[in-house]
């Protein structure tokens, strides 16, 4: 982490700014085990009905489950529904 990044983080935390915007972090919202909403993603790496891998600024997010479905895909938001079993950063 460079110095510039460190200062940015400190300011963000001091002012309680939304991190996903300022630091470009992925924001994951999980509705129980049936819907996952991911903002700030980079791209879909793999898509099957049992495993989805999505690349983000903090590595690849792996979602495992049954009957997974991409409910919505837009340039900044992706929404996965189905029986989610595991969510993991790789």
């Amino acid at each position: 982490m460079g110095k510039r990044e460190k200062v940015k983080r400190e300011i963000t935390e001091a002012l309680a700014l939304p991190k996903e915007i300022v630091l470009n972090l992925p924001l994951i919202t999980l509705y129980g085990n049936e819907e996952l909403n991911l903002e700030n993603y980079k791209g879909v790496v793999e898509y099957t009905d049992e495993r989805i891998r999505i690349s983000t600024s903090r590595g690849i997010l792996k979602i495992e489950g049954r009957n997974l479905l991409l409910k919505q895909v837009t340039s900044e938001n992706i929404s996965v529904t189905g029986g989610i079993v595991r969510v993991e950063f790789m």
Binding site: G43, V44, V45, E46, Y47, T48, D49, L68, L69, L70, K71, Q72, V73, T74, S75, I78
Partner: peptide, 27 residues
């Protein structure tokens, strides 16, 4: 097909109900 989805999303094309089929995906 993942690249296809990514490119479409980047162009601002709205995709929904993307489902997995043995030969690829349908959306």
């Amino acid at each position: 097909v993942e690249r296809f989805i990514n490119m479409a999303a980047h162009k601002g094309i709205y995709l929904w109900d993307v489902t997995y089929t043995p030969s690829g995906v349908s959306m």
